[in-house]
Write a protein that binds this DNA or RNA. Structure first.
Ligand SMILES: [Mn+2]
Ligand SMILES: [Mn+2]
Ligand SMILES: [Zn+2]
Ligand SMILES: [Zn+2]
Lengths: 135, 135
DNA sequence: CAAGTAGTTTAGAATAATTATAAAGTAATT
DNA sequence: AATTACTTTATAATTATTCTAAACTACTTG
């Protein structure tokens, strides 16, 4: 299955029609050999500069959120004023360089003990961010 | 040492003069027997409704940030569009109820192994958030 | 204490990320 | 080809936060 069909499949799975804009977004997100972390603005720039297409921000936001909801992207919560996303959807943890605002993948960090959640609540997921800075 | 002097001390330590507004903020933050989590807006409302004083948002932001910088408050990073702070400055971890946007303190969760940071970077702190939801 | 100055408060403006809107455009179905 | 449902877009709205500069106040000093 070639890339184009993989993109169409992911879109279909996410309940989205394969439009020209969405396929470009897929190309930006899923064609690189290595996974990567990005903000909406990063992604928008990549599409504009490398893929030579200008897509409205609303469409980028909508598509990224749809992919997140359907598990093709993850959101990484860090101490910053903008949202970061990750094309690496496998279970893993992160270093976060506070100064450069850069995320670095690491193998999943396991906890010694997982505490029991309050009655009536169940654990959805656990976020571990190791904040680092240049010395 | 009475509360008032404790507040003045914290302010002095933070390089801030003990103004009427800042002392009210201290009262809201440090007089409760139990520590608590709050947003700037929460804090502003507490001061307005319970302490009967209207303080401009700029002052609340400035004072909270000064206290954070000086270790009298911590900021908790969670998946939300606003900043959360904590009057519990001891080392501890959190459950975060995604639906209610509520933080719950738990004992510090230890990691099985702390990964080595990339060369030239050192660990500043580690954030662990256990996201939960009502079942 | 009076005056000087350095720091503070405030309302309102500015900024910035994100979301909402609604008109024009496109993909899918018949 | 026509119809329908979905999509894109420019633009406005929203919201948290930061900035600004004028009025105000705490502190120091004579
Ligand atoms: Mn935001
Ligand atoms: Mn923000
Ligand atoms: Zn990652
Ligand atoms: Zn806490």
């Amino acid at each position: 299955m070639n890339n184009l069909n993989i993109y169409k499949e992911k879109l279909r799975e996410s309940g989205l029609r394969p439009t020209r804009q969405r396929l470009k977004i897929c190309e930006a997100l899923f064609s690189p050999k290595e996974t990567f972390h990005f903000t909406i603005n990063d992604l928008s720039k990549i599409i504009e500069e490398k893929l030579d297409e200008k897509i409205s921000l609303a469409t980028v936001y909508n598509t990224v959120h749809a992919f997140k909801k359907n598990g093709y992207l993850k959101e990484i919560v860090i101490a910053t004023d903008k949202s970061y996303f990750d094309t690496n959807t496998g279970t893993h943890s992160h270093f976060f360089d506070i100064k450069n605002k850069e995320l670095i993948d690491i193998n999943q960090v396991d906890l010694k003990d997982i505490p029991n959640p309050p009655t009536g609540k169940k654990i959805k997921n656990i976020d571990v961010i190791i904040n680092v800075e240049s010395e």
